[in-house]
Computed example of a mutant assay.
Amino acid sequence: MYKIKCLNKISPAGLAKFGEGYTVGTDVEDYDAIMVRSASMHEMEFPKSLLAIARAGAGVNNIPLDKCTENGIAVFNTPGANANAVKELVIAMLLLSSRKIVPAIEWAKTLKGTGDVAKLAEKGKSQFVGPEIAGKTLGVIGLGAIGALVANAAHSLGMEVYGYDPYLSVDAAWRLSRAIKHARSLDEIYANCDYITIHVPLVPETKNTFCAESIAKMKDGVRLLNFARGELADTKAILDGLHSGKIARYATDFLDDALLGEENVIAVPHLGASTPESEDNCACMAASELIEYLENGNIHNSVNMPAVSMPRSGCTRICLIHRNIPNTISRLSGLLAQAGINIEDMQSKAKKDYAYTILDVTGAVSEETGAHLEALPEIIRARILKP
């Protein structure tokens, strides 16, 4: 029996995946796993029973990753599950940042009760003229699940699209239209694009990608979109660019007090994944990741552990989270051999200072053997999964 604690309201579509053998709720104790959306976990005390955390979304800023890794807790996210929802919002904002639709809506409200509304509208509409996006150039920084969808959609709308991603995966490359031009540097994006949208994770190397230096390299009147992370843009540099006219419009769903009320800022409250379809997709994917890890020890889409998976062979399975140091596997093999246990299949991968190993074995794996494994100084967590 596995216990799953929910820290937020989780879509019923995801919770329905936990069948017999699972207890799921907000008030369970000594839980084996956590399902979370936006709740901050940095101050939480974790029980020793906690094996995994699944974030129903892509970002994991609300989860203490270092603490989890040190305690052998696998942290999962759901990359791509909300990609279509974010793509649709970005395309909507691409249009809103080009045509002065939002100011026009607000101005139209002021005409109520003024008399001949149709005549006044015809007279005043010229102040809201804005360019079409067809034939313009869009730069997409980051070509993961969301960036690739945005690039393809923009191309379908008649835009010339440049994509930049030095870490482009084979799967992502397959998803891209052949018409997307491969930019070899950010400077190529800055120099050529009328619109630029960013879709990269927030890491020290990407913080303030939109800054005074990069903005200076962009076309005059560039339109910038940030629906990835607020800190990818330097707010002061954005404001300076808007006030000078270098930036024509800035659209984002990360609110900053300094941006609110600015004439050429379109800011919405983090709506990227706020669709029922996205919430269902994220919850289902997060639940599936937890089930696969708890029942089979397989890891997919972990942000702090390497991806390791094997089909179940009917053998006893030993799952080990350990430090990535030399000779660990040989010591494990020796200990198991002494206990009369034979390794039938094995997968092991490292991620920086930590590694994850799955062993399918034959022979009696006693509680004493499990205790001996966990007593090894390099082992952080040992789990024995019976067939």
Rank of each mutant, 00 (worst) to 15 (best):
Asn324Ser: 14
Met93Trp: 08
Met35Pro: 07
Thr235Val: 06
Thr362Val: 13
Ile299Ser: 07
Ile266Pro: 04
Gly245His: 03
Val90Pro: 01
Ile73Thr: 03
Leu294Glu: 02
Pro204His: 12
Ser330Leu: 14
Asn281Ile: 05
Leu271Glu: 07
Ala39Arg: 09
Val117Gln: 12
Asn208Gly: 02
Glu122Lys: 12
Ser49Glu: 01
Ser49Asp: 01
Asp240His: 05
Glu213Ile: 00
Leu376Arg: 13
Thr316Gly: 05
Glu378Gln: 11
Ala350Val: 13
Thr275Arg: 03
Lys100Pro: 00
Asn61Lys: 04
Ala52Gly: 03
Glu378Ala: 12
Ala179Leu: 07
Ile10Arg: 13
Trp174His: 14
Thr23Asn: 13
Ile341Gln: 06
Ala183Arg: 01
Leu290Lys: 10
Gly272Thr: 02
Cys319Gly: 07
Leu96Ala: 15
Met346Tyr: 13
Leu120Phe: 08
Leu224Met: 04
Ser333Glu: 11
Leu51Phe: 04
Phe227Thr: 03
Glu122Asn: 14
Ala154Gln: 02
Ala248Trp: 01
Ser185Asn: 04
Asn77His: 10
Asp280Tyr: 01
Ile10Val: 14
Leu320Lys: 11
Ile238Trp: 02
Ile325Arg: 14
Lys219Val: 02
Leu373Asn: 07
Arg323Pro: 08
Tyr2Gly: 09
Ala54Val: 04
Thr114Glu: 14
Val222Glu: 00
Ala286Lys: 05
Ile343Tyr: 06
Ser313Asp: 15
Thr362Gln: 15
His372Ile: 06
Leu225Glu: 01
Ala92Pro: 05
Ala237Arg: 00
Ile380Ser: 15
Lys136Cys: 11
Glu122Leu: 14
Asn192Gly: 03
Gly72Gln: 12
Leu224Ser: 02
Gly334Gln: 12
Leu168Glu: 04
Met159Lys: 07
Ser366Ile: 11
Ile343Gln: 08
Gly59His: 04
Lys207Ile: 08
Ala179Gln: 11
His372Tyr: 13
Glu132Val: 03
Asp66His: 09
